[in-house]
C-alpha cells in the first residue's frame, strides 16, 4: 500500500491508499475521484486519465512509451508534466505521489 494524492482543478485534495501494482487510473476510478474516467480501461487509447504529475515526482516515473507520448501530444491542457494515469503503476517508490487533474476533464 502506498499513498497517492489527487488534486482537482478547484483545489479539492484527496489522498487514498493504493495497492502496489494498481495504476493511478484504477485507484482513482475505484475511489470515484472526479476528473479521471479511464474510459478505455487502461489501453492508452482515450486520454480520459490524463494527469499533471507534480514536478518533483516526474523523475521518479519510468520513461514514457512512444504511444503514451503521442497520445499526450495532442491532449487538451497537455504540458511537460503530463502523463496517462493508467500507465503509472503504483509502487513503494511512488509512495506520496501527487497528481493534478486537468480542468477540461471535469
Amino acid at each position: 500500500m502506498s499513498k497517492a494524492t489527487y488534486i482537482e482543478h478547484n483545489g479539492t485534495i484527496r489522498t487514498i491508499e493504493v495497492d502496489d501494482g494498481l495504476s493511478l487510473m484504477e485507484a482513482a476510478v475505484a475511489n470515484m475521484i472526479p476528473g479521471i474516467d479511464g474510459d478505455c480501461g487502461g489501453a492508452a487509447a482515450c486520454a480520459t486519465c490524463h494527469v499533471h504529475v507534480a514536478e518533483e515526482w516526474m523523475d521518479k516515473l519510468p520513461a514514457m512509451e512512444a504511444l503514451e507520448q503521442s497520445m499526450l501530444d495532442m491532449a487538451a491542457d497537455s504540458d511537460h508534466c503530463s502523463r496517462l494515469a493508467c500507465q503509472i503503476k503504483m509502487s513503494t517508490k511512488l509512495d506520496g505521489i501527487i497528481v493534478r487533474t486537468p480542468v477540461g476533464q471535469h
Partner: peptide, 9 residues
C-alpha cells in the same frame, strides 16, 4: 494505426 496524436486531433 499507431498514431494516437493524429487520432486525438
Amino acid at each position: 494505426i499507431n498514431r494516437p496524436a493524429e487520432f486525438t486531433v
